[in-house]
Simulated assay, not measured.
Amino acid sequence: MENFEDIVKLVTGNLPREEKKKVIEEINAQKRDKEIFKKVKISWAFLSSTKKMNDYEIENAFLKIQNKITGKKRRLYPILNPVFKYAAIIVFLISLTTIYYTNKQQFNRTDNPKELLYTSFITENGQRSKVVLPDSSIVWLNSGTTLSYPSNFSEQNREVSLNGQAFFQVYHKENNPFSVQANDLIVKVLGTKFDVDAYPENDKIAVVLESGKVELAHENIESFSYTMQPGEKAMFNIADKALTLNFADPTIYSSWKDGKLIFRNESMKNVVEKLKRWYNVDIEVANEEVYGSIFSGTIQNESYEEIFRYIEIVCDVDCKLIHNYEEEAKPEIIISKK
């Protein structure tokens, strides 16, 4: 098809009705046009759902994608009608099974040995879930996460332990603080909303505060203390016990609890780790050059096949998809630099 803009107009909903049939017939008649149409459709789906980008950023990103698809430098014509600027977003409701179990653990005391029951909630990779604690606090668990609390949770200080990532909406109780232990880092709160990212395979723990106040402490370092303000992101290095602070958009950082992953100029290394858990797939990076790529996009209800085809387009990489149909076998994606 000589007129590339017709494909763009068709995808963005700006092609007159009387011209649609002709353009669709031309696309179906040419294998190359079918491939271009598919790439443009995938790219526009991502960009149109990326609400945090302004119109200029969306059009500029779309122009870059056009250039990569066609191999030609072109100017983006004003064909994007504001009415169709953003595609309608279908709310993706995730129905998940949370694995629940009770684990007995013995705590030996010299005066009176006491047995505590521990309640744990587990989400496997590819799952997310919502948990209501005995004190009415609400916790959203991301993929590959375990949350545990003791049977005396409501009787004494409200303490939970976390491996993975969770968003907390803590119920306020005067003189009864709530605390989250992740590795040796302790997050103490009275009532607030915050996200803790503490996957055991990572060398850092991230805490992002949406509202209220939280105090960061360390189990073994008495002098370690910092009180966070809303909008702050704290990165705790487990090895050297160092704390790094900056600002982040909490709504973007914790979007996973609403069934979305939002990436803004994020390194491919972080993207790969998040997608592994999100889709429960195995990802192999064939060469280190892949990690030099930067990715932006919003993932909501796309399949992993669609995601990696889009990554191919915008990041100049090849993604080889291997579908494993054996029971309990994960799909595998091999990413290499073009």
Rank of each mutant, 00 (worst) to 15 (best):
K213S: 09
I65A: 05
I79G: 05
V317L: 09
K188I: 11
A242H: 14
S120L: 03
T244G: 01
L147K: 07
R75I: 12
N108Q: 10
D258W: 03
E284I: 05
N176M: 14
L93D: 15
E222P: 09
G191E: 08
L147T: 08
S303T: 06
A248S: 11
E174T: 11
L141A: 05
A234V: 13
E2R: 03
N103H: 08
S254M: 01
N183V: 05
E284N: 13
I333S: 07
N3K: 15
F236H: 02
P230T: 04
I99G: 09
R309Q: 15
Q106C: 03
K39M: 12
H323K: 15
K330C: 03
V208Y: 08
Y118C: 02
I89S: 09
E2H: 10
E35M: 03
F194R: 03
L243S: 04
F62G: 06
A29T: 03
I99F: 08
Q156W: 12
V214C: 02
P200M: 06
A87V: 12
V290H: 05
N67S: 15
W256R: 06
V207K: 04
I221R: 02
W140R: 07
V281C: 01
L321N: 14
F84R: 15
K274V: 00
T97I: 12
S48R: 10
S95W: 08
F84W: 00
I94R: 14
R74A: 11
N112W: 05
I94V: 10
G297P: 06
Y279M: 03
S148F: 11
F168P: 02
V196N: 08
Y77R: 14
N108K: 12
N237S: 03
K39L: 00
G71C: 04
G259L: 02
V91P: 13
E201C: 05
K204F: 06
S148W: 10
Y56H: 08
V285R: 10
N270H: 05
T102E: 14
K173G: 09
P82Q: 13
N67Y: 10
Y101A: 00
R17Q: 06
D195Y: 02
N270K: 01
R309M: 11
E306L: 11
F295Q: 06
T244E: 07
N125C: 06
Y86S: 08
K51Y: 11
F178Q: 09
N270Q: 01
I138D: 07
A166L: 00
R32T: 10
L47N: 04
V170A: 11
M235K: 10
N183E: 08
I7R: 02
F247N: 03
E327C: 06
A182V: 07
E222M: 10
F236A: 01
E124W: 13
A234G: 01
